[in-house]
Amino acid sequence: MAAAAAAGAGPEMVRGQVFDVGPRYTNLSYIGEGAYGMVCSAYDNVNKVRVAIKKISPFEHQTYCQRTLREIKILLRFRHENIIGINDIIRAPTIEQMKDVYIVQDLMETDLYKLLKTQHLSNDHICYFLYQILRGLKYIHSANVLHRDLKPSNLLLNTTCDLKICDFGLARVADPDHDHTGFLTEYVATRWYRAPEIMLNSKGYTKSIDIWSVGCILAEMLSNRPIFPGKHYLDQLNHILGILGSPSQEDLNCIINLKARNYLLSLPHKNKVPWNRLFPNADSKALDLLDKMLTFNPHKRIEVEQALAHPYLEQYYDPSDEPIAEAPFKFDMELDDLPKEKLKELIFEETARFQPGYRS
């Protein structure tokens, strides 16, 4: 834990890192770190609560700039109880001085990944967590956004079992017609939660990839272990087919990539493993919904509104309290091709509203 900075004593240090967030945020305490930044909790002297502050230093890398800009653009436009918001952003007053960006968010005690390492969940908890994931996802999908990296560590939890989806750095506007060349190379989302079509096709992607990830998360809540822990690309596919069985001819016809289709045709026939054999203690309604989410063919996979209306979630289902976005989200430009200098300018502009004396 960093010592509390005395008023006016300059930035606090946390594990050798400068955290320049005073005077409003003090009493910093280390939480963890990701690929390009550290997260601390801090005391907000204005709202009198502890908050989470993520320090991001992305400006050396085009990919990190892209992810940072995506996350900020999306989260500043989203407003939903099951999606983490941005409360404040701290950065230098000029673009030349801006080396880091500090993002202030609600402090959540833990995440689903940490929880599943230590606790076996009751059916009631599984049901409530799944409902909140789908409630947040309904809003995301209504904005025409794909999260693309749903996994237990991106689901934040607090002691009252509130759940918030975080990390929109890989999110995209849904565009089933656009052929994202190089899709697989830039697709760094965790393999275990990846839909089979991501490994088999490169053309376009749809909201059904997020539903697949939610199915993987439900299976993990039922058993405290990942359902498809593939060691590499082909191993991942083999794990999936080992449980779902061989795809039907109709399902194979959806695979545009001939090499991928021929690979699947070359494999020995596998039978589907019954879900109640894998999860003998699970609620039968939970397994019915799991089956509809972990469907090989993305066109037959359940959609988020149908999933919310499934009998497993009937005690929570309330369409009048499951809000959607006001308007579909649009990125003005494809960020993939922009140089990091341009992305830095866009991050600077996007964060201006939090600067003292800002006038829109």
Rank of each mutant, 00 (worst) to 15 (best):
D235R: 04
E345Y: 10
N158S: 13
L234T: 07
K48H: 13
L170P: 00
I255Q: 07
S41C: 13
P176K: 06
G34T: 04
F329E: 02
G85K: 11
Y102Q: 04
H120V: 04
D235A: 12
D149A: 15
C65S: 15
Y43F: 14
I95P: 11
R91C: 12
S284Q: 12
E12N: 03
K151I: 07
Y30W: 00
Y233S: 11
L155Q: 15
I72S: 12
I211F: 15
C216F: 13
L157K: 03
L338C: 08
R77S: 01
L278Y: 07
R261E: 07
I83F: 14
A352K: 08
F354D: 12
Y316L: 07
F354W: 03
R261P: 06
M221Q: 02
P298F: 03
V21E: 15
E305S: 03
D88I: 05
T181I: 12
M13W: 00
E349F: 00
L308V: 04
N87C: 06
I133S: 08
F78W: 03
T159N: 13
D251C: 10
C254L: 09
M38D: 14
L252T: 11
I31L: 02
E341A: 08
Q236S: 08
L258T: 07
C216I: 08
R194S: 15
A189F: 04
K203M: 04
Y131W: 05
A5R: 08
N257T: 14
P280W: 05
L112V: 06
V304I: 12
F19C: 13
P319A: 01
E197P: 09
P274E: 05
L265D: 08
L343T: 05
K203V: 10
F19H: 12
S223W: 10
L290Q: 14
C254G: 00
R77K: 01
D44F: 13
L170G: 10
R172F: 01
A92M: 11
L287N: 09
V104S: 01
T26R: 10
G8H: 09
G32K: 00
L289Q: 14
N262E: 12
A42S: 14
K99M: 14
V51D: 15
I133P: 01
L289F: 04
H141I: 05
S153R: 13
P356N: 00
L28C: 04
S213A: 12
M199N: 05
E349T: 06
R79S: 14
K300W: 07
Y187C: 09
R353K: 13
L234K: 05
V173D: 07
I133F: 15
S29W: 03
K73A: 10
Q249R: 00
C40T: 10
E345D: 15
L150I: 02
G215E: 12
I227G: 00
I103W: 15
Q66D: 06
M293W: 01
I347R: 09
A325S: 13
I198G: 01
N47R: 15
V18C: 04
I72T: 05
H120W: 10
L287S: 11
H180A: 09
T94N: 14
S266F: 07
L294S: 07
E345M: 06
E345R: 06
K300E: 02
P58M: 15
R301G: 00
A2Q: 00
A3M: 09
I302G: 03
K330M: 15
E96G: 00
E250M: 03
N154G: 03
E305Y: 09
I90H: 04
H310A: 03
E109F: 02
F168R: 12
H178F: 11
H61A: 03
K73R: 00
L130K: 02
P58G: 15
Y187F: 15
D177G: 02
K151V: 12
G34D: 10
E186H: 06
T351D: 04
N82T: 12
R148K: 08
I84A: 07
R67G: 14
P356C: 03
P356K: 04
L308M: 13
V39W: 06
P152E: 08
G204N: 07
F168L: 13
L121F: 12
Y205D: 13
Q306E: 09
E341L: 05
E334A: 00
H180I: 12
P274W: 08
H239G: 13
L163D: 00
A35D: 13
G230Y: 02
F354L: 13
D167V: 15
R50T: 12
N47T: 13
K54R: 13
N87Y: 15
L258P: 10
I72Q: 09
D291Y: 14
I31K: 07
F296E: 00
S122H: 06
N253D: 00
V49I: 15
E71W: 01
A286K: 00
K164L: 08
V18T: 08
V14I: 12
Y316I: 07
K342R: 01
D337R: 07
N144G: 01
H299W: 04
F183A: 01
W275T: 09
P311Q: 09
D337E: 15
Y30K: 04
K270L: 09
Y263G: 03
L170H: 04
A2E: 02
L278K: 07
K340Y: 09
N281W: 02
L69Y: 04
V104P: 08
A3E: 06
V49S: 01
Q97H: 14
L308P: 00
L343Q: 15
R67F: 08
R359F: 06
N253S: 10
S29C: 13
Y25L: 06
G136S: 02
L287P: 00
H125E: 07
L290K: 04
A327I: 06
A143Q: 12
D124S: 09
V104I: 12
Y36I: 15
P196D: 03
D283K: 02
A260L: 02
A219C: 10
S122C: 13
A6S: 13
I90F: 14
L278E: 06
I140V: 01
A3K: 07
K99D: 03
L107M: 12
S29Q: 00
K164I: 15
I302C: 04
E96K: 13
R148C: 05
L130Q: 14
P23Q: 05
I209H: 07
I133N: 15
N123S: 07
D235F: 09
R67V: 12
G37A: 15
F19Q: 01
E81P: 03
S223I: 10
D288T: 02
N224D: 00
I324W: 09
E349Y: 04
V304M: 04
F348Q: 07
P274Q: 15
Q97E: 14
R277L: 11
E197D: 15
L278M: 12
T63M: 13
Y64E: 12
K203I: 15
I84N: 14
K99I: 08
A6M: 13
I84E: 11
H232W: 03
S284A: 11
D283N: 14
L267T: 05
P323H: 13
D44T: 13
K117L: 10
F296N: 09
V46W: 09
P274N: 07
Q17N: 04
G136L: 08
P323I: 01
C127Y: 12
K231G: 05
P268E: 10
V101K: 10
W212V: 01
D162A: 11
E197T: 08
E341G: 07
C127S: 15
E220Y: 02
F19D: 09
N45V: 11
K164T: 09
Q306M: 10
A307H: 00
Y25R: 08
N271L: 02
I302D: 09
H147Q: 15
H232N: 13
D44P: 08
Q97R: 07
S208Q: 07
I53N: 14
L234F: 04
S142N: 04
Q119R: 10
E81T: 05
I256S: 09
Q315E: 11
G37E: 13
Q119V: 04
I347F: 15
H299D: 11
E12Y: 05
R191A: 05
R135K: 01
E341T: 11
L170I: 09
S266Y: 07
P311G: 06
V304E: 08
E345T: 02
Q306I: 06
T26K: 07
C65H: 13
K272G: 06
Y233A: 08
E96P: 03
G136N: 06
P176Q: 13
A42V: 11
L156Y: 07
D210Y: 14
M98Q: 01
L346F: 00
Y25S: 03
I302L: 12
L237T: 10
E12R: 11
A5W: 03
E109D: 15
E341M: 09
I165N: 15
H178D: 10
L156K: 06
R148M: 03
M108Y: 10
W275G: 00
K270R: 04
M108N: 02
K55Q: 11
R191I: 06
Q355K: 14
K55W: 01
A327H: 04
L234Q: 14
L150D: 09
L75F: 04
M13F: 09
I227S: 13
Q306C: 00
L294T: 09
R79K: 13
Y25T: 02
L241C: 06
K55Y: 11
A282L: 05
Y187E: 03
R24C: 11
N27S: 00
R353L: 11
I126N: 13
G8M: 01
G85E: 06
I256A: 12
V39K: 04
I347S: 14
